[in-house]
Design a binder for these strands. Structure first.
Length: 159
DNA sequence: GCCAACGTTGGC
DNA sequence: GCCAACGTTGGC
């Protein structure tokens, strides 16, 4: 698979928002709870420390790309899969053979002006973006260089 | 709150 | 290995 340098990761702000990330130590956190194989494989196989990531607020008002992060660790087992009290607990996963991994992410910039999903849909050169494809539910998605730059332009930010 | 589109599970 | 049933995601 082609090596991507740019990604998009979704989070419901009621669960974890970009403001929550901003309050974490070093503005860094572990991206727990990914329980989809395709998304896991992106983290496990394709992400590199220093890759850039859009932070997207899903199930929210407004739906928008709200800022950027960078990958801050190699992939490692998601501790919540072993925790019976966690909603992400997976009884079929073992310490010897963990099913789920995560990566650390560090905040780069919260956009002063979030880029709305509606604005992305209205931008012709972003019509291929996975985020707005019908039925696209993947919570971690690759992003092209053009998409990375265009969204920054729309946000009034420098890539 | 609805429900379409997907992903996963498990019986066969 | 197929596929029906079920569960989840996430925009609307």
């Amino acid at each position: 698979m082609a090596k991507n340098k740019y990604w998009l990761m979704k989070s419901e702000p009621d669960e974890f928002s970009i403001d929550d990330l901003a309050t974490r130590k070093n503005q860094t956190t572990y991206w727990e709870g990914i329980r989809n194989y395709q998304a896991r494989n992106f983290m496990r196989d394709d992400m590199k420390v220093g890759d850039r990531v859009f932070f997207y607020h899903s199930n929210a008002k407004p739906l928008a790309i709200v800022g950027t992060m960078e990958i801050a660790s190699e992939p490692y087992p998601d501790p919540s899969q072993f925790d019976p009290d966690s909603k992400y607990f997976d009884e079929k996963s073992t310490e010897d053979n963990p099913r789920w991994v995560l990566v650390d992410v560090k905040l780069i910039k919260k956009f002063d002006k979030p880029v709305l999903r509606d604005d992305i849909k209205n931008e012709p050169t972003l019509s291929d973006m996975m985020l707005i494809k019908k039925g696209s539910r993947l919570s971690i998605q690759p992003v092209t260089e053009h998409e990375w730059k265009k969204v920054h332009e729309m946000a009034g930010e420098k890539p």
